[in-house]
Design a protein around this nucleic acid. Structure first.
Length: 243
DNA sequence: GTGAATGTTAACAG
DNA sequence: CCTGTTAACATTCA
């Protein structure tokens, strides 16, 4: 469910509930459910993998982690972490973290770090990377303070597109190459969004969860990489290792 | 039935 | 105190 583009899809799908009044809130999240009742939803926002339900004087923050999901209208069989009921409709959130924040997302988050945001700033990301020169590119791409919204799929596909090995050391990567990687994070995320909407995302994976490159016998390597120990998928001959 | 997976945080060991 | 490891969350898919 996660990765930034999936949260953007949720934001679009749920937008029809904007300005509605919550009639009842329930679920096993440890927040004061009554505080949401009879309150109007001002907006839905996202920052990377975080999803926000904005009320006039507080915010509900939802993070879906690895297993999170949501459903409109009718509940699933399992207990929802949070359910919002309206006059004639409901929305349910499952297996996610639900927290109440007393500030608005604008006060708490730097949207120039969100690869899906209009405020996304390549130059700022490159400046942040200067302090992380000794790290591996596979680790820094998952750093949400720099590339908010990028997850393991985007990481792998971006590095394949840019022909860079996931274990490359940031400061050894030529500047133009590094810039291309940062740029591609947004580009691929929007391709992800487009394909996911058409329900054909997997069809477009070049390396992620692939055994070989599509329609070839060129082997894709799978390896746990970096301090994050997340799976990297790469074509060893085509993706240069800068070390 | 088994294992791995789009993620993050907290607890613990050294 | 810093770093690394493990567990937890509890679902879905191959």
């Amino acid at each position: 469910m996660p990765e930034g583009p999936s949260i953007v899809i949720l934001k679009e799908k749920i937008s029809y509930l904007k300005h509605k009044i919550v009639a009842e809130a329930s679920g096993y999240a440890e927040i004061d459910m009554e505080a949401l009742e009879h309150k109007k939803i001002i907006d839905f926002k996202s920052w990377g993998k975080h999803f926000f339900i904005c009320f006039s004087d507080f915010t509900i923050r939802i993070h879906f982690g690895l297993f999170g999901s949501y459903q409109f209208h009718e509940p699933k069989k399992v207990n929802p972490k949070l359910a919002l009921h309206f006059n004639d409709d409901s929305v349910y959130f499952y297996v996610c973290t639900v927290e109440r924040l007393d500030q608005s997302p604008d006060e708490l988050y730097d949207f120039s770090a969100d690869v899906m945001s209009d405020e996304w700033d390549v130059k700022k990301a490159l400046v942040k990377l200067k302090d992380l020169g000794d790290k591996k590119i596979c680790d820094v791409l998952l750093d949400q303070h720099i590339f908010s919204g990028v997850g393991n799929i985007i990481k792998n596909e971006v590095l394949y597109r840019c022909s860079v090995h996931p274990e490359s050391i940031v400061k050894k990567i030529p500047a133009a190459k590094l810039k291309a990687i940062v740029h591609e994070c947004r580009e691929y995320s929007f391709d992800f969004l487009k394909w996911k909407k058409k329900n054909e995302l997997k069809k477009h994976f070049e390396v992620y969860q692939q055994k070989t490159l599509r329609n070839t016998d060129q082997k894709v390597t799978k390896k746990d990489t970096g301090t994050t120990r997340r799976s990297s998928y790469f074509q060893a001959e085509m993706q240069e290792l800068y070390s």
